[in-house]
C-alpha cells in the first residue's frame, strides 16, 4: 500500500493514540512524511485528521506514540519550538498588526530585525502577490488576500514544514480553485513539506502527492491520488472517492465486493450480469440518471447518454446491467 521508502522520511509518526473520555480521536496512527512532499489528511469531520495535525503541531499531547523529525523525538516539544508554519481555516491573522507586522511576527520572535528582516518580509509578501498591501490591516483585506498573508507569515521564517488546517474552506468555490493552484505553485516554489487537512476529496486529489484517508481516528488508506481513485482499499475509501455502486459477492459472482462507478454500469441487451428494476429516472439534459434495485434490495446507479434514439427504460421496468471487468474495483473487505 505504501510504496515510498521509509528511510527518506523526515517526519515519522508511530502508533499515535489520543482519547477524549470514551472517544478515540486517534487510534494507533503510524505515518511517514517525506521531505518536500504534499501530503493530505482526508476524512469526514470527527475522523481525527485535525487531531493528527494538531498533534504534529504540538497543540495536542498524544496519550501514546511518538513523533520524530529527522530522527529527533519531538512528541513533547512545545509548539513554539517546533518551527512548523501553520495556516488556519479562519486565517488567525493578528488584528492589531498591519500585514507587514503580521509577517514580521515570527522573525521578531526569533530576534531578527532591521533591514534583513524587512527584506524577508517583502520577499514573502511578493511570493504571495501582496507586495502593495504591507501597510494595510487584515480587516481591510478580502478573504483570499487574508489567506495569502497567513501563508506569507507561515513561510517567512523558513519552517521545517507547513501545516494547513482546511485553509480554503471559508472561501467561495471560484476563489478556492484559484488558491488551490496558487498553493501548488507555492509548494513547488519553496520546496517545503506540506501537510494539508481537508474533507474535500476533489481538493485532495488535485493537489496532493499522497493522500491519507482517515476514519474514526484510524488511517484507512495511504497512497497516491490515482492509487486511491483506482484501487480503493475498502468501501469507505471508495465512497469517499465518489464510487456509487457496491455489489456484494453473491451478486458479483466473485469473492470480493465490487465497487463500480455509475459510468461503468451499462444497460445490457439481454439479462445482463445483474438483474434489477428501475426505481428512479432523472432527466439531466445531456444524460439520464437511473437508480435501480436488485431483488435483494441493493441500489445501483447508472447513466445513459441522452439522444441515442433507442427506447429508454422507464420506472418499474425490469432491466439487466453489465460492466467490464477492467472497470470493476474489487474491495479487500466489506
Amino acid at each position: 500500500m505504501m510504496t515510498h521508502t521509509p528511510e527518506t522520511d523526515t517526519l515519522k509518526i508511530r502508533d499515535l493514540s489520543k482519547t477524549y473520555g470514551k472517544f478515540r480521536a486517534l487510534d494507533t496512527v503510524s505515518l511517514g512524511v517525506d521531505q518536500g512532499e504534499f501530503l493530505t489528511l482526508l476524512g469526514p469531520s470527527g475522523s481525527g485528521k485535525t487531531t493528527l495535525l494538531m498533534s504534529i503541531a504540538g497543540f495536542i499531547q498524544p496519550d501514546h506514540g511518538q513523533i520524530t523529525l529527522g530522527g529527533r523525538d519531538i512528541t513533547h516539544m512545545p509548539p513554539e519550538k517546533r518551527s512548523f508554519g501553520m495556516v488556519f481555516q479562519g486565517y488567525a491573522l493578528f488584528p492589531h498588526l498591519t500585514v507587514n507586522d503580521n509577517v514580521m511576527f515570527p522573525l521578531k520572535m526569533r530576534g531578527e530585525k532591521g533591514a534583513q528582516a524587512a527584506r524577508r518580509v517583502a520577499e514573502a509578501l511578493e511570493l504571495v502577490g501582496l507586495s502593495d498591501k504591507g501597510i494595510r490591516y487584515p480587516r481591510e483585506l478580502s478573504g483570499g488576500q487574508q489567506q495569502r498573508v497567513a501563508l506569507a507569515r507561515a513561510i517567512v521564517f523558513q519552517p521545517h514544514m507547513l501545516l494547513l488546517d482546511e485553509p480554503l474552506s471559508a472561501l467561495d468555490t471560484q476563489l478556492r480553485g484559484q488558491l488551490q493552484s496558487e498553493l501548488k505553485r507555492l509548494h513547488r516554489a519553496v520546496g517545503l513539506t506540506f501537510i494539508y487537512v481537508t474533507h474535500d476529496q476533489s481538493e485532495a486529489l488535485s493537489m496532493s502527492d499522497r493522500i491519507a484517508v482517515m476514519r474514526e481516528g484510524r488511517l484507512e488508506q495511504v497512497g497516491r491520488p490515482d492509487d486511491l481513485y483506482d484501487r480503493p482499499a475498502n468501501r469507505f475509501v471508495a465512497e469517499f472517492m465518489g464510487v456509487e455502486n457496491f455489489l456484494p459477492p453473491e451478486l458479483s459472482g466473485g469473492q470480493h465486493t465490487l465497487a463500480l462507478r455509475a459510468h461503468a454500469l451499462e444497460l445490457a441487451a439481454g439479462r445482463g450480469r445483474v438483474a434489477a428494476h428501475v426505481t428512479e429516472r432523472d432527466y439531466y439534459g445531456a444524460e439520464i440518471r437511473y437508480t435501480a434495485h436488485t431483488e435483494s434490495g441493493v441500489p445501483l446507479r447508472f447513466k445513459i447518454a441522452a439522444g441515442q434514439g433507442e427506447s429508454l427504460p422507464q420506472e418499474g421496468d425490469a432491466i439487466g446491467l453489465d460492466w467490464q471487468d477492467k472497470d470493476a474495483l474489487p474491495l479487500a473487505d466489506h
Binding site: 513554539e80 508554519g85 501553520m86 488567525a92 511576527f105 521564517f157
Partner: peptide
C-alpha cells in the same frame, strides 16, 4: 477574540 490567535502565535515561535 479568535482562540486560534494563540495557536497562530505559538506556531510562529512565541512562547
Amino acid at each position: 477574540l479568535d482562540p486560534k490567535l494563540e495557536q497562530a502565535a505559538r506556531s510562529l515561535g512565541a512562547g
